[in-house]
Each structure stands twice: as C-alpha cells, then as structure tokens.
Computed example of a mutant assay.
Amino acid sequence: MSCYQTVQDYAFRAFGYGERLLPRSDFTLCEQFTLIGSGMMWNIYYGTVAVITGFFFANLLAVGKNAKSAWARKPAEWFIFLFRGSPLFIQFFFAYFLFLNLKSVSSIFDPLSSAWLGALIVLFLNTAAYSAEIFYGALRSIPKGDIEAADAYGLTGWPRFRKVMWPTMMRLAWPAYTNEAIFLFHATTLVFFSGFPAWRQKGDALYYANYFADKTFNPFVPYPILAFYFILLTLVIISLFGVINKRLNRHLPQERRRKLRLRPNLIR
C-alpha cells in the first residue's frame, strides 16, 4: 500500500471516516504518522473549544473573585480553589462516574458519558479556573493611575471596565495565559487515560501512539511522532497568541512591550 493510499484510508479515521480496521502488522512509518495525526484532530478539538469557552468564563470568575460582595466573591474563590487544588486526572475520573449516574437517570444525559462532550466539559472547567487566577492577578495589578484617569474622565462601572480595566488586564495577563493555553493542549492527552471510552477506536493521538507501541513493543517510534505533532501545535499556538500579544501592546514603546516566555508547568 502506498503512502498516498494510507493517507486516504486513515487521515480522518479518528472521526469515523475511511478504513474501519486498523493495521495489524508490518506497520509503516506513514501509517503511524497518518493515524497519530488523525488522532491529533481530537486533541485540537478539545483544546480549541475549551480555551475559547473557558476564556469567557475565566473573565467572569476573575471579576467575581475581585468583587466586594461575598455572594459573588466566595463562589468564584471556591470554584477556582477546587479545580486548581485537585489533579486534572482525578477530575476526569469523578466527572465520568458522575455522568454515568446521570445517564442512568435519563437518556438525555447520554452524550455526557462520551469523550467529545464529557471530557470537554472537564477541560473547560479546569482551564477556566487556572485562567481566572491569571486574570485575577492581572486585574489586581492594574496601575492605580489608569483607574484614576478613567475616573477623571467620568468613566464608571461597565464603561470603565470595558475601556480601561479589561484591556489592561488582558495585556498584563496574556503572556501567562499563553502558557496556560499551551499546557491545556498538552493536558488533552489525559483524556485517553481517563474513564471516557474511545468509541469504535475513534481515539486521540495518544490512543493511536499507544496502539502502535503495544503492537510493535517499540515505543521509540510512535511517541516521538506524537511529541513532534505537539511541538508543531505549540509553535502554532505561540504564533497566534504572539500576534494577539502584539495587538494588545501596540500602543506601548518597544522597550515596555511584554514578550511571551514559555515557562514549563511541571505539575498540572
């Protein structure tokens, strides 16, 4: 089988399109690159949707944690503490069994026990908590002079937050938030190890890398391929977030512009 035919058969297999049977023996490098790349589409799906939705929820949590009212502050504080204080894998574990119990109550909850929705909800809540703490720190770091200037112009409430506080908060938080987005995409590999099943072998990139490692007893080919794909994905994220970072800092002198720096997160 040619590499072109392999790509045609397996490029979209992770979504259920193409050849249904996985190769059983005589694995080629093209088959491994194609199938692991096919599974990467699930990792990109988890990470992209979780980052976008979690961004808006994180802003709401950061504002809530900064609120004077205990009714708004305490729920935000406990939510952030809960999801930052527990390991992501444990969150997957408990969420899956919670969703299974809901499924037994009514069939309307069936999608929650599937990885495409159940695992996505866990990632969304987790990144919202981490991002909220980043945004909260940036919100508390806004220079008082900016707020006083807004007051002098008569800006109060929502107009002041939207035109002065929120842009400054984003500018201060963006380098750290970029790291959070990168580590969230890396954390999508935990979906394979969680209780959420890969229905009809429609798994993510780690699922297929593990499949090849088990069949060949050689992890030194599929796992470096997996790492290669994630390095490419990381470069794409850094590039996209770097463009936004330049946009946020476009009004500052060159020497005051905050640059993106990748800081390894050893424990998630």
Rank of each mutant, 00 (worst) to 15 (best):
L120F: 14
L123T: 03
I134L: 13
M165C: 11
F161V: 00
T168M: 14
F161D: 01
G137N: 11
P159N: 10
L125T: 04
Y136P: 00
W116C: 02
A138S: 10
L125W: 01
D151R: 13
K163L: 14
W158T: 14
L117D: 07
N126S: 07
S131E: 13
T168Q: 15
A115V: 01
I147C: 01
F135T: 01
Y153C: 11
W116F: 14
D151F: 13
I147F: 12
A129Y: 09
A119H: 03
L139C: 03
A150T: 14
S114N: 12
I121W: 03
A128E: 07
L125A: 07
I134D: 05
K163Y: 13
T168I: 13
F124C: 00
K144T: 11
I147H: 09
V164K: 08
E133G: 05
T127W: 04
A128P: 06
L125F: 10
I134Q: 11
Y130C: 02
R140W: 00
L125M: 07
G118F: 00
T127S: 11
E133F: 05
D151V: 00
K144G: 15
S114R: 15
V164A: 11
D151I: 04
A128D: 08
Y136W: 10
W158E: 10
I147A: 13
R162T: 05
Y130K: 01
R171H: 06
F135C: 07
Y136C: 05
I147G: 00
A152E: 01
L123C: 07
E148F: 06
L125N: 01
A138T: 05
A119D: 05
R160I: 06
T127K: 02
W116G: 01
V164G: 06
L155K: 11
W166E: 13
I142S: 02
V122I: 08
S114W: 11
I147N: 01
V164P: 09
F124K: 00
P143N: 02
D146Y: 14
R140T: 09
T156R: 13
M169R: 01
P143R: 04
L120D: 11
A152M: 11
